[in-house]
Amino acid sequence: MDHKIIQLRELLNRKESEKKPCQSISSGCLPLDRHLPQQGFQRGSLIEWIGGGVGSGASLLGMLAARSACRGGGALVLVDRGQSFYPPAANAYQLDLQNTIVVHPTTEKDECWAIEQALRCSDIAAVVAWPKRLTSNAFRRLQLAAEHGGSLGLLVRPTTARNESSWASLRMLVSPSVGRQGWRLSVELLRCGGLFGTKPIELEIDDQTGEVRDAHPRPLAAQLAGTTPDPRKARA
């Protein structure tokens, strides 16, 4: 009996959620949410992080977003052509590996195909991938697939991608810097809805607890006033 009721309830919930495809999902990182329109990412869209190379921390944000996206149910697909993804670390992010499908394509073409297939599937909550190159055409197809499937495409890109055109609804540049308490990542919103060129957001990840916080916590109003000093300049 109980089981039936639960199933029914789940079904209703699902129906409910399907009605609102344009629902926003937290980026998995509260300080960042505060800077985003609708406090998070939109389902059915692509998010793009451009990292400064190996060791720069861009994937970390991608993982946090993936974890957040999976909270509402649905599986996660990781398209890892480089085969360098390290599951034990993801487990430390409390990413549910039981619920994760890892795909190892060997060619760029297969990689793109796999991302598209996964995005197109509406029971997939998010797709994380590290495509090195994306033609505008391919990028567009991914965007359409995400829109069709209503899932979230989380793309972590190399620095070189900065100059390429993008179909992502949100594009961020992630560069690490030196923090006092933990690891500091500065996130610059390159494209965010219609907004361009806001000041970078400084995040600090606690070495002990793994908590992600704003490196310069202060009222939203002050932030909007744009009084943040550049930390790099300050150090110099």
Binding site: L60, S84, F85, P88, A89, A90, N91, A92, Y93, Q208
Partner: peptide, 19 residues
Amino acid sequence: RANSHSPFSLLDRPLHLLA
């Protein structure tokens, strides 16, 4: 088998491991 809770915290292990 159920993947257990992680023995590590966020920055103990890298997401990117060289083969």
